[in-house]
Design a protein around this nucleic acid. Structure first.
Lengths: 225, 225
DNA sequence: TTTGCGTCAATTGTCGACAATCGGAGTCGT
DNA sequence: ACGACTCCGATTGTCGACAATTGACGCAAA
């Protein structure tokens, strides 16, 4: 995992991470009310730190707070997920364009090696869908890091990252897309290697559009049941 | 002002807004340490709500917190501002593309009228630079609203909006750019009217790139002094 | 003089209790 | 029977005090 801090510093930070994990994995259902006193006791802390954690999660858009009425887990409806993927397309596209100019040859090479290992995992089918998904996040985040843009890294790393993982848990195993996705990843790396930022951006945007289309269809199919 | 809530609901929200205002206007210098007890007394509240406000501002990237060492106002150095404008270019470009498909004719018309009023203000020179800047933010935010994308509205409205205003206060009155900017705005509205999302996105991205170049040069000139 | 250590004030982190507000159950009137 | 009103429990918002950590100042030794 990328921005993981299992236990550190202040209690508020610990609560924040534990809550984020519980929300992303679905342990806390979407729209569920979050009772301050109950959670505080569960985590063995006072309500003060927990309230700060909730404020932090509110900033990450994982919970929604209503004054005098408590906090609830956000609901990832179709519209919200659609919005999320539009933002990702814009942000990661830009990251890719910049990365094409700023990544070192060494980093691009490492990216290529990462894809090799993904290909291995797919062949063996050993890692399964989950680890492939995590690997996919790795690939995307490496490119974002390559942009050297701290704001992009923050946004895509801490906030969007969680929401996107939430998406994945919701619409799990549509794994038939791993192969074409890998192919697209390869194309992107090639564009990076050729330092063609414009092309790299276009390919990344198409790649994300494709991912959204796939998820979108999966949802539509599920709801037709 | 767009997302203004002078005084409402909880003390933490009030403190958050007052602090944000003080930071954006430069009343609180960049990098300045924020003493919890002092601010709490200044705002006439306990430290609890104030701490929550700081957590919220941390999410908005207006302050940076270090565990056990307090919170400081962020420093808008050259690199950060550059990063910010890259993110804006990506986000507002996307917003513009979507808005071209989703805005009503009525809304586009209103946008055109808004530009007329800006032109008037420039001619009269009455409003001065400040109100023109605020008007510019209005124009941009109207387009973002037109995208109907809540996440974009949130990001550009609450977070980036403040940081960008901070930029403006730092590099104030480089007003010679208002005329070409207005011209570019007109082109964008025209692209929206023709429902050409791709063109609208490209024009918006160029527009923001131009704004950054202008600010960038201003900073370079200042630092050479 | 400089370096290292120990102490101490200041600031942050945390907790428990109190006040304010909201939602719902129950009741009364029509 | 239905609607509105009232009261009460539960939950959130707020405060003040206490504990823990940090950074700095001063002192002593090399």
């Amino acid at each position: 995992m990328l921005p993981n801090t299992p236990q550190q510093g202040t209690l508020a930070d610990i609560a924040s991470h534990r809550l984020a994990h519980s929300i992303v994995t679905g342990e806390l259902a979407q729209g569920q009310k979050l009772n301050e006193a109950e959670l505080a006791e569960r985590y063995g802390m006072g309500r003060g730190p927990l309230r700060e954690a909730l404020r932090h999660l509110e900033g990450m858009r994982l919970v929604k707070r209503i004054p005098n009425a408590g906090a609830r887990v956000v609901v990832l409806d179709y519209q919200t997920m659609s919005d999320l993927y539009a933002v990702r397309e814009a942000l990661e596209g830009m990251a890719c364009r910049i990365a094409a100019a700023r990544m070192t040859d060494e980093e691009i090479n490492q990216l290529s090696l990462l894809l090799d290992s993904h290909a291995m995992q797919i062949e063996q089918q050993g890692g399964g869908v989950y680890s492939q998904s995590e690997g996919d996040l790795d690939f995307h985040f490496q490119i974002v890091r390559g942009s050297r843009n701290k704001m992009l890294m923050d946004m895509l790393g801490s906030e969007q990252y969680q929401l996107q993982r939430m998406c994945r848990y919701r619409t799990s195993r549509n794994a038939q897309r791993t192969r074409p996705a890998l192919q697209q990843h390869r194309q992107i790396v090639e564009a990076l290697a050729q330092r063609d930022g414009e092309l790299a951006e276009m390919l990344m945007r198409r790649h994300i559009q494709g991912a959204w289309r796939s998820i979108s269809e999966t949802i539509a199919r599920e709801e037709q049941t």
